[in-house]
Structures are given as structure tokens and as C-alpha cells.
């Protein structure tokens, strides 16, 4: 069974934990560097990116997380997408710089502009997925190494770069585990 972590500093980490378990993984809630070292892939959940950044910084987890991302897969959703980005605007803030995307926070507006929609995702998913956008960010630009898997209102919302996967929406808030399965396909068994 693949062992993956969910960054559990703040946000809907339990929803991700359940989705990953449904997809067949063993899940560790990650709050320390030791816990991070014990897993072969990591989900950074939705929540408040500023809160997570403060805690990462205060707990000395920023560098360990950057190092982790250089060798192992990360799946960032919503706030997680903001954290892994190369550049963040509205307002400008720190990020891990693991995926070559520029992200604008709260780009659809406030909570009243949150919405649910159905999207078509390209191969390997090649099918429709339900996408829940909650005060979601928008991906403004993607670098050359980034593959766009789905778009919504003319912006990429699901992208991959090598081992990493990024969604600006919340697959963990649906009953469809296909994106979590796609992520688990990227995760090794830890025998390296």
C-alpha cells in the first residue's frame, strides 16, 4: 500500500485523508519534519494559504517541504496550489516555487462567487469531473514544462508538471476519487 501524507497544519486535510483512503492509500497527517520524511507523496489541502505559510515558517517546515518536492510528488489543491506555485499575486506572498505557475489568489471574488461546475479533464483521466471552487485562485500563466489537464473560464484549473499535480478546486469535496488515484499513480512505493 502506498504511504502518502496530507499536510495537516490547517484546512480540509481530513477530507483529503478520506479521499486518499478511498483511493487505496495509507495516510499520515503531516505536522512535523519527521512525519514528512516518512511519506512518499504529499497532498497540500485547501484552507488558508497565509495561515499555512505562517505555520510552515514558524515550525521550520518550509525548507524540508521544498526539499521533499524536489524528489517526491506533491498534489496541491486550492491553497495547496498557491503554496506550490512559482509566483503568487493578490497579494504577493511567499511560495515554495515547485511548480512553474503564476497564481492569483481569490481571483473569482469572495465566497458569494464560489461555485460548482463540471469540467472535462484530458488524458490520462479523459472524462468529466466535478469541480468545487471555494474562494479559489486562478492560474494566470503556466511555464513550458507544465501540462494543462483542464480549464475553466479560459484559465487552467488542473495542471501537472512532472511528478506534481495541481488543482485550483477541491476534488476532496466530491465523492469522485479519480484525481486522488491519478496522484497515487505518481507516488512511488518508497523502495528507492
Amino acid at each position: 500500500m502506498k504511504k502518502v501524507g496530507v499536510l495537516a497544519l490547517q484546512g480540509d486535510f481530513e477530507a483529503h485523508q478520506k479521499a486518499l483512503q478511498r483511493a487505496g492509500a495509507e495516510v499520515v497527517l503531516v505536522r512535523t519534519a519527521e512525519q514528512l520524511e516518512s511519506v512518499n507523496g504529499l497532498v497540500i489541502p485547501g484552507g488558508e494559504s497565509t495561515t499555512m505559510l505562517k505555520l510552515l515558517d514558524a515550525e521550520g517546515l518550509t525548507e524540508p517541504l521544498r526539499r521533499f518536492g524536489r524528489h517526491k510528488p506533491i498534489f496541491g489543491t486550492c491553497a495547496g496550489a498557491i503554496l506550490v506555485a512559482a509566483k503568487v499575486v493578490n497579494p504577493e506572498q511567499e511560495s515554495l516555487g515547485l511548480v512553474d505557475i503564476e497564481v492569483e489568489r481569490n481571483a473569482y471574488g469572495r465566497q458569494l462567487d464560489s461555485h460548482v461546475t463540471r469540467l472535462h479533464a484530458a488524458a490520462p483521466l479523459d472524462g468529466d469531473i466535478e469541480a468545487v471552487f471555494i474562494r479559489a485562485p486562478v492560474i494566470l500563466h503556466v511555464g513550458p514544462g507544465v501540462r494543462v489537464l483542464a480549464t475553466h473560464r479560459d484559465h487552467p484549473v488542473l495542471v501537472e508538471q512532472g511528478r506534481h499535480l495541481v488543482a485550483t478546486f477541491h476534488p476532496e469535496l466530491t465523492t469522485d476519487a479519480s484525481l486522488h488515484k491519478l496522484f497515487l499513480d505518481k507516488v512511488g512505493n518508497g523502495n528507492r
Binding site: A8, L9, Q10, G11, D12, F13, E14, A15, G46, G47, E48, T51, C78, A79, Q111, S114, H115, V116, V132, I134, R135, H170, L173
Partner: peptide, 17 residues
Amino acid sequence: DETFRIKVGLAEMLKGG
């Protein structure tokens, strides 16, 4: 319904905070 899911969705994001 969809509206209620979006309302609860934001509450989900605040967990642990």
C-alpha cells in the same frame, strides 16, 4: 444541494484554524 455544499465547503476550509 449545490448551494449548501458550497456554504459548508468554506467551513471545511477553516478547520484546524
